[in-house]
Design a protein around this nucleic acid. Structure first.
Lengths: 136, 136
DNA sequence: GTGATTGCAAATCTTTTGCACTAAA
DNA sequence: TTTAGTGCAAAAGATTTGCAATCAC
């Protein structure tokens, strides 16, 4: 029950330098309302279709990339052939259940990393991807 | 200068339950001689062609999967659209240079992980994938 | 021989692209 | 109006599959 969710989506898009089009607003609702999510392009496209948001698959791809570029989304590298996007853009790690293909965030308090390597020569650690793969 | 490298390749394949065919032997030489490597199917196929090993791309894919299945290789999940295979099957982490697409093993002494989560209900941590992404 | 392996070409699947059309500012 | 964004259909890549030919045992 947030106040004025619709216009807050619009202003979020504006702040990111993206025009609040019908498609971007609709996809934003799917993505950013109701907790953190991990989505694929096809998955988001299906959801949109189910909720009768008219949008093309190409636009879903464009939108996922645009949102990632401006920092509203983050890409998660699971080694399969599909790309996952995460609405949680804070530093955190992932739990991947191999049997069910489910992806979960690891509670930041449970941080698994204890050391961040550093580099000379202008090289920077852009991020550290951690995926705990669970089976059974 | 290992002794009898050829026959050790053959026995390694036999022990893994794979018939030592000309293609598998040739690809094994490319993969397992001269230190740990990270390869893609296309990359290995090119190497094979350069060294005039006659093998089809489909067989390279089959071989990479077969080798992974029996534990001679391990897949590395960089989030790009290509699959990397690692000849180092021991527990270790990766360094990925985004600008050059280079992938390096992290020295096991530099272990970045300090905590291994555990699960109940028959769930097991199969492995923890870590990729330190470096830019610049 | 016979069952595993290979190679080719076609198929599949995800993602990207070109470009005319539409909508936001 | 002017530029960004959209949608379609086609293209591009990586990987897989089906099946006949070949090879290892």
């Amino acid at each position: 029950m947030k106040a004025r969710p619709y216009s807050s989506i619009i202003s979020r898009l504006r702040k990111s330098g993206l025009r609040p089009t019908r498609q971007r607003i609709g996809l934003s609702e799917l993505l950013f309302e109701g907790g953190n999510k991990h989505v694929t392009a096809e998955g988001l496209f299906s959801q949109a279709t189910e909720r009768s948001l008219k949008v093309s698959l190409a636009t879903v791809y464009n939108t996922l990339h645009d949102f990632t570029r401006v920092g509203l989304l983050r890409e998660v590298g699971i080694d399969s052939s599909v790309r996952y996007f995460d609405t949680n853009v804070t530093e955190h790690q992932h739990l991947y259940f191999e049997d069910s293909d489910k992806l979960l965030d690891i509670d930041p308090d449970e941080n698994i990393i204890c050391k961040r390597p550093s580099f000379s020569g202008g090289k920077v650690v852009r991020r550290i991807d951690v995926v705990v793969r669970v089976a059974g």
